[in-house]
Each structure stands twice: as structure tokens, then as C-alpha cells.
Design a protein around this nucleic acid. Sequence first.
DNA 1: AGACTTAGTGTATTCCTTACACTATGAATG
DNA 2: CATTCATAGTGTAAGGAATACACTAAGTCT
Lengths: 226, 226
Amino acid sequence: MNGLKNFHYTHPHPAVTTDVVLFSIREARLELPLVRRTGQPFAGMWGLPGGFVGIDEDLESCALRELEHETGITGVYLEQLHTSGRPDRDPRERAISVAYCALTPADRLQIKTMNGEKEVGWFALERLPPMAFDHAEIVTMAHQRLVAKLDYSTIAFQFMPETFTLGELQTVYEIILREPLDKRNFRKRVLALDRIAATGELRRNGNHRPARLYRLKFPDKVEIIK
Amino acid sequence: MNGLKNFHYTHPHPAVTTDVVLFSIREARLELPLVRRTGQPFAGMWGLPGGFVGIDEDLESCALRELEHETGITGVYLEQLHTSGRPDRDPRERAISVAYCALTPADRLQIKTMNGEKEVGWFALERLPPMAFDHAEIVTMAHQRLVAKLDYSTIAFQFMPETFTLGELQTVYEIILREPLDKRNFRKRVLALDRIAATGELRRNGNHRPARLYRLKFPDKVEIIK
DNA sequence: AGACTTAGTGTATTCCTTACACTATGAATG
DNA sequence: CATTCATAGTGTAAGGAATACACTAAGTCT
């Protein structure tokens, strides 16, 4: 805390923050974590996880640090989304927010929720609460980006756990696109990408034929396709 | 100038700048304007037009203002590109740059070059000089974005003057893509977009049949296509 | 009048996308 | 142990989109 120090500039500098829209697929919905704000402004309201950029801190590091600090979530896929700088977006002082879009498989969550002092809530994209600042706009932008990237990149693979079935992968696409897909065409297309490989293992769940398990060939890479 | 004033904060704030990569097609090349730096750091080197964001100034306004101030160019198409914030990118102080990608037809230029004190130079994308800060990286990103957007948006139309021929439009595409296109297929595709309309006028230049002139139906709109 | 230069036009083929229905396999049930 | 149940897994035909390709049109220049 620098509460007692002062920093001087010959011209005024804006505050810079990062904010993260972290998507995950939970309970067959596209959901994201929001943090209950404790201080002013917008105290008590929900907002994106984020905070001020350290003076020697990279923007991505800041986004990841604040995400971990406020939600306990680490190891996500992260890409820069947009920088919002409307002069009136923060009533206290000029604040510029560099927004990031992040994706993570649902099985990486819940390891350490409620580690900070702040309340964290998961919200379905369809049922978002009123949000602080211009965070609603940022979420909209992130969603548009996600949908757009679905069909020219391998971004959806970032929702998948270590191993997964083709049925599960198809379900992820269907949830994001909000429409059913043809099973045979989906498999044909996704296998033709040559980005996933069968592990040789099977998954046995319900009273039905077991499904082959697959894994990503390049787990952390999101590629432009076609 | 605020040389005598001081601004105080309880925690350090970064400086925020905007930088603009403005593409235009000149002499059958993709070119962009750079500004000779006068002050430190990188004095004497070339850099993107840009500068500090005013404390009550929108980011886009800043980009447009600095572009006009340093190069005299106005009325361009502008879209946000990327925000660079590596802590060491400016040797003086922490500086975060919001980069914009801009496009303009060549006939809007040269109206008032050299209006400021700074030297402005146009450089072919293939023959860029050494550049200040991380501006070379920013230009690379802008170029990648432009090429990518060529085939899923109507962005290339932003290079065209009020009226133009299909041959000129095809040449623009060929310059950016660095490959020749089939004339009949190009016309079929571009007319099918239904974004340009014949004016009814003809253009007579050389010793050959005159070409029909077209204009954009929605001059300022860049749309996602297909 | 003839040569030159770019404008302007249509069709056949190939490739990709889409639509579509049945068999396979293990679990659960009685 | 036979039957039911639920999801896994597979191929082909038709339609639509992208591609390859060559000649005529019209005005200028000599």
C-alpha cells in the first residue's frame, strides 16, 4: 500500500486497470465469475475481476494476478479484448481499462473459491446482474468475440479438460452457438482439423456404449483455421 | 503546457498514449506515415504518429487529434488494434500505448503535409526504417489484421475514393494480398456483396475503353461478410 | 484505318458443405 | 439371461460455392 506516499507528474496521468471476462461452461451454460464490489464506486454491485496495473507490471500479468487474487482461478487461456477509455466511465478519476477475454475448462475451478475477502459469484451469460462501470458492454464484446472465433479458430478447445469425448466437445459448441449440430458433420470437421488425438482410453458413464477419449495435440495453442 | 504544475496520486500511474498505423495505397504500394521524433527518447528516429491521452479525452479522439496534429490527415477510418504495456517499452517512465489501425484513400492526403513542426515521411510497408519503442511490432500487428480482415469484411473499401472503377478496386486487393486475382471472379464476388453501386458515370483515362464508376453504398461502414 | 490498351462478360468443373439413418456397445432391468 | 435403454460411431448423395478460363467492346493514339 502506498497510502502515505505521493507520486508527482507534470501532466495528469489516468489510472489503468485490467478486467477479465472469464468464460467457462458450467451446468450446460456459458457462465462467468463476477466479484461483489466492496468499495466505492458501485459498492455492493457486481463487477468483473480486475484491478490497477502495477507500475512495473505487464498488462497480462496484471489480468492474471487480479483474476487469481479475486477468484482463486489460475492457468486460464487469455487474450486481449479491448481497451475502454471513455472519460466518464469511472466517476472518481480518469480510468482506462484494458479488458481481457479468458477461457477455462470447468474442472479447473472450485479448487479454492472464497480465498479472498470478496464474494465471487458465477452467472449465466443470459442472466447477468446489473454491473459496475461499463462492464456489461465489455462482457457483450467478449461474447461476440467468442462466437466469432468459434468458426475460424480452435478457441473452443480451451473449454475442454485434459481428456474429453467428441460428444462433450459437440455439446460445448452447441451451447455457445445456441443451436444443435449434426453429429456426423461435426465429427468429420473437427477430426479433419487434426488438432485432437484419441488417447486409446474409453469413458464409461451411463447405460450406453463407452466413448473414445481425445486430448488436444497442442493444448495451449489457439490457431486460426480454414 | 503544464510545466509548472504538479499532479499527485497515492499510487503511481502510468502514462497512456495512442499510436496510429495509418495505411494508404500510394504508388501501387501499401504505405504509412511516420513522424521524425524530435525529443527523447529515440530522438531523430521515426515513430508512429501519436501522443499522450488528455485527462478528459476519449482514446479515439486522442488518436485522431494526434494524427491530425502530426500529419495533417483527417477523416480516416479508425479501429482499435491492441494495447501494448510491456513495462520496459519506454525507457523514461511506464507508458502504455493504445494502438489504432487506420485506413484512408490516397486522394485525401497531401492536403496539408508539413503543417506541424515535425517531419512526416511516407514509407512502404516493405521498406520501413528502424522505429522507436515497439512501433515495429505494432505495425506488424496492424498489417496482419488488415490482411485477415480483407476476406471477411469490407475493410478494403476504406481505401477507395468517392468514386472508383472495379479495376482500381481489384488492384487494391492485389496490392494488399500480394497476388493477382481473376478479373471475372473478383467482379462477381464484389458485386454480389451489394455494397457498391454504379454511378452511371464513366472514367476515361488512357487509350482504352472507359470504365464504369462505382461508389460505396455505405461509405463509413465496415461490415463482416460471409 | 489499324494498332493498342484496358473494360466487360458466362460457363463448366471441382471442391466443400449439407442433409440424412442405421448399427454398435455396454449398463440397467426384470 | 434376454430385453430395454442410451449414447457412440459411421458413409454417401445432392446442392451450392469457388475456381479456372478466353474472347469481344470501346475509346485513344499514330
